[in-house]
């Protein structure tokens, strides 16, 4: 059996990649992808722990999390489309109307 530490290691690698992307990237679509990475790293954790527990709660929770991610992606892309129509770009550096 694969030890749980390996799952956690992969999960944290994915999380860090997502976080790095979130901080460095400017493109809105790339940001969405990074957020998906963050969510999925959490899902990996949930499923990994679930295999060591005597029930399926973690896996069911992961399913909910995926559905949530889908909804979030739908809203996120809708916002991005609106942004593109308004500014002609989805580069989030230029979309900074709400600043000082």
């Amino acid at each position: 059996m694969i030890p749980v530490e390996l799952y956690l290691m992969i999960s944290s690698i994915v999380f860090t990649i997502g976080l790095y992307g979130l901080i460095t990237q400017k493109n809105g679509v790339k940001l969405m992808m990074c957020i998906e990475l963050l969510l999925n790293s959490a899902n990996i954790n949930l499923v990994a722990f679930s295999t060591y527990a005597p029930n399926y709660n973690g896996q069911v929770f992961a399913l909910f999390s995926i559905a949530l991610a889908a909804a979030e992606a739908g809203i996120g892309f809708a916002i991005l489309i609106r942004l593109y129509r308004l500014y002609g770009t989805i580069d989030l550096d230029t979309v900074n109307a709400m600043r000082w």
């Binding site: 901080i23 460095t24 990237q25 400017k26 940001l31 550096d93 709400m98 000082w100």
Partner: peptide, 17 residues
């Protein structure tokens, strides 16, 4: 102080982290 509010999402994320 208000310069902190850059309006750039990435900066907020960085601050959060």
């Amino acid at each position: 102080m208000r310069k902190v509010q850059t309006g750039v999402v990435q900066n907020y994320v960085t601050a959060l982290v």
